[in-house]
């Protein structure tokens, strides 16, 4: 079965995030005040063939560590993208 998964990649704590900093500076100019700790990242949506959801997430985590993120500077989290109806 195919399981929809989302992998979110963000910069590790302590790693400078010039994109996040720029967005944070831009928000007040549009009237959005009171926003702090803006961190920019990437997200990937994948359909993964697996026996169950746990196995799909395990596969996604392995992909995230080898390719989707650079563990030197980034963290990756895989979660289910299944829409609960």
């Amino acid at each position: 079965m195919n399981y929809p998964v989302i992998v979110e990649v963000t910069l590790r704590e302590g790693i400078a995030d010039p994109e996040g900093a720029t967005i944070e500076r831009a928000l007040p100019a549009l009237g959005f005040t009171g926003v702090t700790n803006v961190r920019a990242g990437k997200s990937f949506r994948l359909d993964i063939e697996a026996n169950d959801e746990a196995a799909a997430l395990l596969k996604a985590t392995a992909m995230a560590e080898r390719l989707l993120s650079n563990p030197v500077i980034e963290n990756a989290v895989a979660r289910s993208a299944k829409v609960v109806s």
Partner: peptide, 17 residues
């Protein structure tokens, strides 16, 4: 070379983008 793990560290977007 950094992505391949042959050199330490990583290269990020420039400060100021």
């Amino acid at each position: 070379l950094t992505e391949a793990g042959l050199l330490p560290g990583a290269l990020q977007k420039n400060r100021g983008l």
